[in-house]
Computed example of a mutant assay.
Amino acid sequence: MNKTIKLRVKKEIDRKSELEVLKLKGTLITKGYTEIIHIEDENEDFELHYISVNNLRDIITLLSALNN
């Protein structure tokens, strides 16, 4: 069953945070959890990143591992 994860990301973030977001998205793609990440503007300060995934439990485990 496909689930959609929505990340709300500030447009103006520091370099370290930007690299963390890129690392997360790259990991999701390379591990085969998703193929497409849709990005749209929410307003002038934030953008939304939509990630469609098949196995939400694996994604939660991955996010926990990346957070530590």
Rank of each mutant, 00 (worst) to 15 (best):
M1D: 12
M1G: 15
N2K: 15
N2S: 13
N2Q: 10
N2F: 14
K3M: 15
K3E: 04
T4H: 14
T4N: 13
T4F: 11
K6I: 15
K6D: 13
L7W: 10
L7F: 15
K10C: 05
K10L: 13
K11T: 06
K11C: 07
K11H: 02
K11N: 03
E12V: 05
I13M: 09
D14V: 12
D14A: 04
R15C: 05
R15M: 01
R15T: 09
R15Q: 05
K16H: 07
S17G: 12
S17F: 05
E18Y: 08
E18P: 03
E18H: 04
L19N: 09
L19E: 04
E20R: 08
E20Y: 06
E20S: 10
V21E: 01
V21Q: 04
L22A: 12
K23Y: 09
L24E: 00
K25Q: 12
G26I: 08
G26R: 02
G26Y: 10
G26D: 09
G26E: 07
G26V: 09
G26A: 05
T27I: 10
T27D: 02
I29M: 10
I29C: 07
T30R: 08
T30N: 06
K31Y: 06
G32M: 07
G32H: 03
Y33V: 02
T34S: 08
T34D: 03
I36S: 03
I36Y: 03
H38T: 03
H38E: 04
H38M: 07
H38P: 00
D41C: 07
D41I: 11
E42Q: 04
E42I: 13
N43E: 00
E44C: 12
E44D: 12
D45V: 08
D45N: 11
D45E: 10
E47V: 10
E47P: 08
E47I: 07
L48M: 15
H49F: 09
H49M: 12
H49P: 15
H49Q: 15
H49A: 11
H49C: 14
H49N: 15
Y50Q: 13
I51S: 01
I51H: 01
S52N: 06
V53L: 08
N54W: 00
N54Q: 07
N54L: 00
N55D: 10
L56S: 10
L56K: 13
L56F: 14
L56D: 09
R57P: 07
R57K: 14
R57A: 10
D58N: 14
D58F: 12
I59P: 05
I60P: 05
T61P: 04
L62A: 00
L62D: 00
L62C: 00
L62M: 01
S64Y: 06
A65I: 07
L66S: 04
L66D: 06
N68P: 10
N68R: 09
